[in-house]
Design a binder for these strands. Structure first.
Lengths: 144, 144
DNA sequence: GTAATTTCTCAAGTGCACTTGAGATCAAGA
DNA sequence: TCTTGATCTCAAGTGCACTTGAGAAATTAC
């Protein structure tokens, strides 16, 4: 084993597939070093890094967003507590906004669809507070 | 124009692309009739039907879930207020559950990632209340 | 030392939610 | 009538987040 975790170790400890970990590397989320034989070797801090990615995905963040946030972490040193705190504070803001949007939508659901009024531009549900607007046009954001 | 709305009319009134409306037809969400020339003709009720789909997607429902719910609506008659109320009540339950999950995750974010404790199976964020569990394994649910 | 396991790279496939394009037909205004 | 625009079908492409497969090299277990 010499130095660091193998990709299989990391997969075991995070629950991710080996292929997913390699995929994340292509997106700049982890930066393993190579041993003499060309195999990837990971730091213990990478467990935390990947766990963070998984958590953020469960919170509804796209990989690209997560990757962008993680560029603020040091690539080859273990991030400090302050590093994690800073990045998590940023993401918390997004989460709060998302909760607010969902609550608004829920509150209109009874009154709007429930009453059968859903028609055209006038219905609150038709375009509820432009939640999606910030990501520009096109669907395929917002899943659950 | 003779009878009903054209697909272009429907696109204008819902804001959807014509191609999206045809796509939804293949998924059983709308059921247009054809005129003599083979062109689709839609009922006014289909505006509401598609608006409902858009709203539900913004709420985070997958098309397959929405389509499943909409099979409970009459295919060729305009749904009644009671029809809409019943289906919206069902979906509201999912929304409430989703909000609760997000709130739980938000509340652990400060304490967990913020403190730098994120490691292995012990961390609350690593597998927060098994939110994803109900959809079975595999990622690519939960987006926003 | 040999067999079994892991890992390597790279290309291609998957599922969702659509969009784009090609070539043809239909409908509507001047 | 003619021509422009809308619509038709069907196949293929797109973006995201990965997975699967093939063939080869490295590592580990016995």
């Amino acid at each position: 084993m010499s130095q660091g975790l193998t990709i299989g170790d990391l997969a075991d400890r995070t629950g991710l597939a080996v292929s997913a970990i390699r995929f994340y590397e292509t997106h700049g989320i982890v930066h393993p070093v190579r041993n003499a034989g060309g195999h990837r070797r990971y730091a213990r801090a990478d467990i935390r890094r990947l766990s963070f990615v998984m958590a953020a995905q469960k919170l509804g963040f796209a990989l690209s967003d997560i990757a962008a946030h993680m560029t603020h972490l040091p690539a080859h040193k273990a991030p400090t507590k302050a590093d994690w705190t800073r990045i998590s504070r940023l993401m918390k803001r997004d989460i709060d906004a998302r909760i607010t949007a969902l609550e608004t939508l829920r509150d209109t659901l009874d009154g709007c669809i429930g009453c059968g009024c859903l028609s055209l531009k006038s219905c609150a549900l038709y375009n509820p507070a432009d939640v999606q607007g910030r990501d520009g046009p096109g669907p395929r954001k917002l899943m659950a």
